[in-house]
Nucleic acid binder design. Structure first.
Length: 931
RNA sequence: GCCCAGAUGGCGGAAUUGGUAGACGCGCUGGUCUCAAACACCAGUGGGAGCGAUCCCGUGCCGGUUCGACCCCGGCUCUGGGUACCA
């Protein structure tokens, strides 16, 4: 710009600019979010992070940047936007670190939170930090404990289809006994009259009530490691041995707290329909909930009084039953195994006992053992052998199945392997290609259902079972009640004491929070009890012994989004008025790894709180978007064996080499900075290199980001070099938010150049004024900017941020080639870019003479008049291949187009002498001629 | 094993509803500026054939539907996420 040569232009000093605006934002408190506002509310939420010791890497902020852009956009659109951040601060890694180092998890967690906050603050987010929550903060977990107590004091009344206080259940028992009472998620309530209820001992009453509570105790199978003296997560078990130390792990039944998620199963399933979640996410939840219709059937054991219940989705196939299979952990196994078979069964139990459920399902080998016992077929009275096998899981259904090898693949494989009979019972010849799941065919060899279609046979069998009193139609859910006990230290203590009878009692709500006491050792007690069991003066109280287990990670994360609304409230987990204003989350962004766990538990808690009248919405998260995982891109050098000489990537085949990870910070465009590499480690100081084209080229591979692979990129380093705006734009430019993608810092140069081009476009002088034209914008300028407004508005709404960045680049390129310095146009561009690049746009906004923060202004709208096209260049295909491009008026009629096109010289060449079979004209799109 | 995704140039990706495959950017090549380099700017860049106009091939693999398929259907392969105590 010749005209500007006389003026001194302000330099693009990124760090000074960031400092300046950060300070401005704090001083003017522009990110304060009021709980009372005339504006409509909008709630944007990120899945809050677990503050790990490693700090943030560039993968973490991807979703946070996206939500920040959306939150800022909504703000510009006139909403009062809640966009908070907090920490999921209880968890295993801190506890493990404490065991190894003796450092209190609270100390390390608080340090890690401080690091995370500092790193997050480097990324220009609009969080109102006054709303921060941390799940390990007693002020927070007071309410986690409170909600647990409410779950403990509630049951699910199927008659009203909602959770109710336990008092309503006791009233029913006192009035009519158990008659007519249906408690959700409870298989069978014992039958008793009102009088019988009164006659029951306190202990008996407590047991019955416990079996109906939404937070209840029962026995569950866990991975017990005797050597470590603790229960392990499936993650911590590999091939029957603990991952740490390699000690044997066994399956053990332990008394555990659980949440009755199953009571809500039907609603969790049905209410998915109204949520704006991806189909994939809903499908995963549907499959997890796993509703299936079938029948429960009781089988009598031969020469015994014992019966056992099975669940089948195909009661119609009952005449095809040729054996029964129990899960290895089934209670009956020990009782019914004959002396002859005991050795074989014990060996199998040892084999299966060492495997987790996941490992068992993965097992391709067919395995099992015969108990020696037989069941009686309810219709034929024949004896059916009872086997055990790992393919039947104790946690699903009743842990027992009737096997129909002719109609089930796994049963068939089992029958084949162990030479058990296969009885054909369905003629599928009428339905070629139908699978077992389709439930189609005509019954054969099946006594009273012979000749029936499958659906009719199902009804007929169910009816007969019911008449005989040995079974009935039943809906089964795969979803299990959530295990809620952890034998760990670093979690919420249960607000529960055991009275002299050993009955759990809620402590008074006025005693909350029940805080974690200090402990001398974080190591497991060795007896299967949690570390808290050793703190005897905490455990023993006047009311009884405290529960020493703690709550799981998902406790605090199941309701945190409610606390952000009113984080300092000491009388309520959220003030009802405040809750009614914010309602629920409008947009929730987080990883698919939480598809079923966290997102099911949160939904269940929310429905519970809704039923009890504490929240006003039925679902917590209206719209859900899953950001993809950012993977690392590792770089490799190739060391020639037994030397300190490294050979460049493309020459490595000529040598015997070993591949070593090199830090990605020393590599640019796959070329290694050999000097930096020599300084990296003492043993590389005298390394030598065999180069290609004068360079050392590295190999590369996409892997998980991890310290040991030297491929972790810290956002702090990027911010220091390129600035926050550049990092934000680049993370968005990488690709679609939902896709997983590898991180490669090399591409950031393009975004950095783009920002410099933007800076130059404004020509800001030393008095912070942009050298721009006040004239009315030209038609071309208007078209360029309004096209961008349209594109960016639409793309932000569908969270397609990568294409927004492309649109900015195209717009700036266009304005540069138009030599445009128009103020109106640049003002709109500044507003469009403000959610993406919060710092530089403040600078632009100020330079245009605007007052206040750009983030409190209004988003522009596009004018369709400015972007109207009068002609369209049509691709003309002949037999589906593009042969010509012809410009035509956009409003051209089909007949006129046909005449023009067929007469066009480029088309004539292809159609001459040929018969035109079809002329396809898609207005505004394409023309295809079939000859 | 089961459930859910994904695969497009050397690389990240675009193509929103079945309608011009490769927008935008990185990298690379050539050029301008410079003593030189860096920066910046200009031009080119899916593969192949041809001086050229132009033609052939091309969206993980095999097959199908359609005037027309990256997009829909059937069957695979590979990669990622989840699989209930990692968060």
């Amino acid at each position: 710009m010749k005209a500007n040569d006389t003026l001194t232009m302000k330099a693009y000093d990124i760090q000074a600019m960031q400092q300046k605006w950060k300070q401005y934002w704090v001083e003017h408190d522009i990110y304060h979010v009021p709980n009372d506002s005339d504006k409509p509310k909008y709630y944007v939420l990120d899945m809050f992070p677990y503050p790990s010791g490693a700090g943030l890497h560039v993968g973490h902020p991807l979703g946070y940047i996206a939500s920040d852009i959306f939150a800022r956009y909504k703000q510009l659109k006139g909403f009062n936007v809640l966009h908070p951040m907090g920490f999921d601060a209880f968890g295993l890694p801190a506890e493990q670190y404490a065991i190894e180092t003796g450092q209190h998890p609270e100390t390390t967690t608080n340090n890690n939170i401080a690091t995370f906050k500092k790193q997050l603050d480097n990324l220009g987010f609009n969080y109102d930090w006054k709303r921060q929550v941390s799940t390990c903060d007693p002020k927070y977990y007071k309410w986690t404990q409170w909600i647990f107590l409410q779950l403990f004091k509630s049951w699910y009344n199927i008659a009203n289809n909602k959770a109710e206080p336990l008092e309503t259940l006791i009233e029913k028992f006192e009035a009519n006994g158990s008659t007519g009472v249906q408690a959700g998620g409870v298989d069978e309530l014992p039958t008793f009259s009102a009088e019988e209820w009164q006659q029951k001992s306190a202990q008996e009453q407590a047991d019955i009530l416990m079996s109906c509570r939404l937070a209840f105790q029962s026995y569950a199978t866990v991975n017990w490691c005797p050597a470590l003296g603790t229960v392990l997560a499936n993650d911590e078990v590999k091939d029957g041995f603990s991952e740490r130390g390699g000690h044997p792990v066994e399956r053990k039944k332990m008394r555990q707290w659980a949440l009755r998620v199953t009571a809500f199963a039907e609603r969790l399933l049905n209410d998915l329909d109204d949520l704006a979640w991806s189909d994939a996410m809903k499908e995963m939840q549907r499959n997890w909930i796993g509703r299936s219709e079938g029948a429960s059937i009781f089988f009598q054991i031969a020469d015994s009084e014992e019966t056992f219940e099975i669940f089948t989705t195909r009661p119609d196939t009952i005449f095809g039953v040729s054996f029964m299979v129990l899960a290895p952990e089934h209670d009956l196994v020990k009782k019914i195994t004959t002396t002859e078979q005991k050795e074989e069964i014990d060996a199998y139990l040892a084999y299966a006992g060492a495997k987790t459920d996941r490992e068992r399902q993965q097992e391709k080998k067919v395995t099992g053992a015969f108990t020696g016992a037989y069941a009686i077929h309810p219709f034929t009275q024949e004896k059916v052998p009872i086997w055990i096998s790992e393919y039947v899981l104790i946690g699903y259904g009743t842990g027992a199945i009737m096997a129909v090898p002719s109609d089930d693949e796994r049963d068939e494989a089992f029958a084949t392997k162990f030479n058990l009979p296969i009885i054909d019972i369905i003629d599928k010849s009428k339905y070629p290609g139908a699978t077992q799941k389709d439930k189609l065919g005509i019954m054969i060899n099946s006594d009273f259902v012979d000749g029936m279609e499958v659906p009719d046979a199902i009804k007929a069998v169910n009816q007969r079972l019911e008449e005989m009193g040995i079974g009935k139609g039943k809906v089964n859910f795969k979803i299990r009640d959530a295990l809620y006990s952890r034998q760990r230290y670093w979690g919420e203590p249960f607000p529960i004491v055991y009275d002299e009878n050993g009955t759990p009692q809620a402590i008074s709500e006025s005693e909350l929070p029940l805080t974690l006491p200090p402990v001398e050792s974080f190591k497991p007690s060795g007896t299967g009890e949690a570390p808290l069991a050793r703190v005897t003066d905490w455990v023993n109280t006047a009311e009884g012994k405290r529960e020493t287990d703690t709550m799981p990670g998902f406790a605090g994360s199941s309701w945190y989004f409610l606390r952000y609304m009113d984080p300092d409230n000491e009388d309520n987990f959220v003030d009802p008025k405040v809750e009614q204003y914010w309602q629920n989350v409008d947009l929730y962004i987080g990883g698919t790894e939480h598809a079923v766990g966290h997102l099911i538990y949160s939904r269940m808690w929310h429905k519970f709180l809704y039923d009890r009248g504490w929240v006003s919405t039925n679902e917590p998260f209206k719209r859900l978007v899953n950001q993809g995982m950012i993977q690392g891109r590792s770089s490799f050098a190739y060391r020639i064996k037994n030397t300190n000489q490294f050979v460049s990537y493309n020459l490595r085949k000529d040598y015997e080499v070993s591949r070593l990870h090199v830090p990605v910070s020393m590599v640019k465009n796959d070329v290694l900075d050999t000097e930096a590499f020599k300084q990296f480690r003492a043993d590389y100081a005298d390394a030598t290199f065999i180069l290609e084209d004068g360079k050392y080229v590295c190999g590369a591979e996409i892997e998980k980001m991890s310290k040991s692979k030297y491929n972790v990129v810290n956002p702090d380093d990027i911010v220091a070099k390129y600035g926050t705006d550049c990092l934000r734009l680049f993370e968005m430019f990488l690709g679609p938010l939902e896709h997983g993608k590898p991180w490669n810092t090399d591409g950031i140069e393009g975004v950095s150049r783009f920002l410099k081009k933007c800076w130059n476009l404004f020509s800001i002088d030393e008095s912070d004024k942009a050298q721009v034209s006040d004239a009315a914008p030209s038609a071309k300028e208007l078209k360029a900017i309004h096209k961008t407004i349209k594109k960016v508005s639409e793309d932000i709404e569908r969270l397609s941020f990568n294409t927004c960045v492309s649109a900015f680049m195209e717009c700036v390129n266009e304005l540069n080639s138009l030599k445009s310095k128009n103020k109106t146009v640049l003002r709109d561009l500044t507003l469009l870019m403000a959610p993406f690049a919060p710092f530089i746009t403040e600078e632009f906004w100020q330079s245009l003479g605007e007052s206040g923060s750009v983030h409190l202004a209004s988003f522009p709208t596009y004018n369709p008049e400015y972007i109207k096209e009068s002609t369209k260049t049509y691709p003309v295909q002949i037999n589906g291949k593009v042969r010509a491009k012809i410009e035509l008026p956009v409003d051209l009629k089909r007949e006129d187009a046909e005449a023009i096109i067929l007469a066009h010289q480029k088309v004539v060449k292809w159609v001459e002498g040929k018969n035109i079979r079809k002329f396809i004209f898609v207005p505004g799109k394409i023309i295809n001629i079939v000859v």
